[in-house]
Design a protein around this nucleic acid. Structure first.
Length: 216
DNA sequence: TGCCAGGCCGGGT
DNA sequence: ACCCGGCATGGC
């Protein structure tokens, strides 16, 4: 793939603006980022709806409640015991560090903030980058399984590329802003829903044909 | 009916 | 520095 920006424009024409992240506010994005770990978004929606209808979509409420009760509330999101603990460790850090204030969080430089996020139990690279990009608007490219499969099967990176390798490839080749990274990642997920499945031959997949038609 | 979904952690090599 | 098992629900 020679021109990533052209690829992006092609995807945008094909799929249209994705309007990510599907949430009402920054804190909802952060909660969703943890809940959607290895989980279909439709399941996360159910969990978020329950939290919302019970007034629990609030850092202080989550911090106060016990993990078992929280686990029951987020049950449809899967791994509910694990994720209850992850939500609690995250909000504890969020309250300690920024008093639960997103604006205060935004004033911290993205680089150091990413390291701090990674130190929170239950927050790995994708969750950290999702929070930085989609909750705070920081120019950080989010890598996920779809990104990995698309990039390896369409000649962007080697099979053994790791998270940071992929992130670097996209950021250096795009040299874009938060707006571009936001839309591009969302488009990659849209592609992933019809192409580049875990077990699939990409030689004749719709994306390959689409790319060939456009000269990639 | 399995396979899959917008990962991450902890323990073992 | 990898590699692997565990974690769990819901949709197709």
């Amino acid at each position: 793939m020679r021109d990533l920006r052209a690829f992006y424009r092609a995807l945008l024409r094909r799929y249209g603006p994705q309007k990510w992240w599907p949430a009402e506010g920054p804190f909802e994005v952060m909660v969703g980022a943890i809940l959607t770990q290895n989980t279909a978004w439709t399941n996360v929606e159910k969990a978020i709806a329950t939290l919302k209808s019970n007034g629990l979509l609030d850092p202080r409420r989550l911090d106060e409640m016990d993990a078992g009760t929280l686990a029951l509330a987020i049950r449809p999101a899967g791994y509910f015991n694990v994720k209850a603990m992850r939500l609690k460790s995250f909000v504890r850090w969020f309250l300690d560090r920024f008093a639960g204030d997103v604006e205060r969080m935004k004033r911290t430089a993205p680089g150091p903030l990413r390291e701090e996020l990674l130190a929170v139990k239950g927050v790995g690279p994708e969750t950290a980058d999702s929070i930085l990009l989609y909750a705070l608007g920081a120019p950080t490219f989010v890598v996920d399984q779809y990104t990995y499969r698309l990039a390896t099967r369409h000649g962007l990176v080697a099979e053994d590329a790791g998270y940071d390798d992929l992130k670097e490839v996209f950021e250096t080749r795009l040299r874009g802003d938060a707006r571009l990274y936001n839309e591009f990642h969302a488009l990659i997920v849209a592609v992933g829903k019809e192409c580049c499945r875990p077990v699939a031959r990409c030689e004749s997949c719709p994306l390959r044909r689409f790319l060939a038609r456009r000269g990639f």
